[in-house]
Simulated scan of single mutants.
Amino acid sequence: MDSTYVEIKFSEKKNDNWFQKQKIELPKDGVVSCDPKIIDFTNDKLNDFTFKSSVAARGANEIRTLLIFEKITGKLKLITNSDNYPNLQYNEVLNCIDSWMVYGGSSTVFLTIDQDSLKEFAGVALFENYREIYLVDKKGKHKTLKKEKIKDLEVYTRFKNFNPLIENAIN
């Protein structure tokens, strides 16, 4: 009664009958609708599932919880930190997931799935007339590849690659 959550019932059809394989309850804010989407985030030709769990930056950052379909188990696996990365999408160029974070600037963060979490491996940050391209090692430490001051920097740019730098035509 005192919380808002989403309930996901995942079923499988066998012999013309539906059987519930999984029931998942996850917290969500009471502000935005769930807006569920079925998209392949892992390029395995199997559909994965997201829903809006929150909103941030006055609506510029769409926070979605990601559940990956695992063929081996036939179940959905929660990616536990997916709600830390706004505006998630599958990145065809790098065969990864990327996140576009909007704040006083913006960052495109490139991510891989490591067990039940997203792990950052590179990114492009745009802030205060600087563009920084960086790598992230296994311990989470950032290493700057290139940082440059850019006059008239368009800070709300999403990228689909960091080396070479390629802008994403659709944000």
Rank of each mutant, 00 (worst) to 15 (best):
T42K: 08
N17Y: 12
A60C: 06
D44F: 06
G30V: 11
T80R: 13
P27Q: 11
K77S: 04
N171A: 08
V31S: 13
S117E: 09
E120G: 02
V31C: 07
L126P: 01
S107M: 07
D98W: 00
M1C: 07
W18V: 10
D16A: 08
I68E: 00
T108P: 00
L67S: 01
T108I: 04
A57K: 08
L46E: 15
N91M: 02
N161C: 11
F159R: 00
P27R: 14
A122P: 00
Q22R: 09
Y130F: 15
I133A: 10
I24V: 13
R158N: 03
K119W: 02
N47H: 13
R131F: 05
Q89C: 07
I38N: 11
E70T: 10
I24T: 09
Q20V: 15
E167G: 07
P36C: 04
K23T: 13
A56H: 09
L78K: 12
V136G: 04
Y156T: 10
K28H: 09
S106T: 02
V31K: 14
I63T: 02
D137G: 08
N91I: 00
K160T: 09
E25K: 15
E92T: 11
K141V: 10
F110L: 06
F162I: 01
V102H: 00
N87W: 02
N91P: 07
D2W: 10
